[in-house]
Computed example of a mutant assay.
Amino acid sequence: MNFSEMDILLKKSLKPGRYIHSVNTMKVAVELAEHYGEDVEKAKVAGLLHDCAKNFDDRETKRYCIENHIELSPLEEKQLFLMHGAVGAVVARQKYCVEDPDILNAIKYHTTGFAGMSTMDKIIFLADYIEPGRIHGDVQETRSLAFIDLNLALISAFNNVLKYVISQNGLIHPFTIEARNYILLMTQKTYEN
C-alpha cells in the first residue's frame, strides 16, 4: 500500500480531530527526522499511523489484544487506552500493510516509551507530544528542546506526563518510568544528593 492509499484509508477510519492530530504529528515527525538524520519516509508513515487504533473502544482494543497475543498487565487491563499503541502496530501491519519493524515499534511505544528507545521511537513519541494542536501544560518547554537535544526534550515530556498523571491520581505505566530513568542514566543527568 502506498502512502497516499494509507492516508485516504486513515482519514476514513478516524474522527476528523484525530486525523488532523495524526497529520500534524506526521509533519513534526518529518521535521525531526530531517533534523536528526533519520529516515524521513519511515517517520512520515509512523507519524501518520501512530494513532490508527486510537478510536477503538475498550472492547475492540481488548479483542485485538487477545487475538494477537498481546499480554496485558494489571495496569493495562485497567487502562486499556494505553494499549492503542500496541494495537496500532498490529493494525498498521494488518490493515495498512506496514512491515518495517522501525515503524511498527515507533507506533507501538509512542504512548509509554520504553528503556532503550531508538531515535525513530523518540521522534514519534515527541512529535505526538509537541504537534501544534497540543496546548497542554508545559509543552512549550519541550517544543523548544525538541530541535536542540532529543533526550532533553524526552525528559521534559516524560516529566510533564508524570506530573499530569500524578495530579489526576492516575496509574503510571512502568515503561514510562523505565524510559525516563534510562535516558537520565545514559546521559548522566541524574540528580545527586
Score class of each variant (00 low, 15 high):
Leu184Arg: 10
Glu76Met: 05
Ile123Gly: 04
Phe125Pro: 03
Phe114Ala: 09
Leu32Lys: 04
Gln188Glu: 15
Tyr164Lys: 08
Ile20Ser: 09
Asn2Ile: 01
Asp39Trp: 01
His50Gln: 15
Asn68Arg: 08
Val28His: 04
Gly137Cys: 01
Ser167Gln: 06
Met83Ala: 10
Leu104Arg: 11
Ile177Leu: 15
Thr25Ala: 05
Tyr164Ser: 06
Lys95Cys: 01
Cys52Asn: 15
Ala33Val: 05
Ile70Cys: 08
Tyr129Asp: 07
Met120Leu: 15
Pro174Ser: 14
Leu145Gln: 14
Ala53Val: 11
Thr119Leu: 09
Ser144Met: 10
Ile183Leu: 13
Gly17Asn: 12
Met83Arg: 11
Thr25Gln: 08
Gly88Asp: 13
Arg63Cys: 07
Leu9Arg: 10
Ile123Arg: 08
Asn159Trp: 01
Arg143Val: 01
Ile107Val: 14
Leu145His: 05
Thr25Met: 01
Ser156Gln: 01
Val87Pro: 04
Glu99Leu: 15
Leu154Asp: 03
Tyr164Val: 10
Asp121Phe: 14
Asp102Arg: 01
Thr187Leu: 04
Val87Ser: 07
Tyr36Phe: 08
Lys163Asn: 11
Ser156Asp: 01
Thr112Pro: 05
Glu192Lys: 07
Met120His: 02
Glu192Ile: 13
Arg180Gly: 06
Phe81Ile: 09
Tyr164Glu: 03
Thr112Glu: 08
Asn24His: 12
Gly17Ala: 15
Asn2Pro: 02
Arg180His: 06
Ala115Tyr: 10
Gly113Thr: 04
Leu145Asn: 09
Asp7Trp: 09
Val28Phe: 14
Asn55Gln: 05
Arg18Trp: 11
Lys54Arg: 08
Pro74Gly: 04
Gly113Phe: 00
His136Tyr: 10
Lys12Met: 13
Met6Trp: 04
Glu178Thr: 01
Ala29Cys: 07
Met117His: 05
Met6Val: 03
Tyr19Lys: 04
Ser4Lys: 12
Phe81Met: 07
Arg180Ala: 06
Ile183Cys: 10
Lys62Tyr: 11
Gln188Val: 14
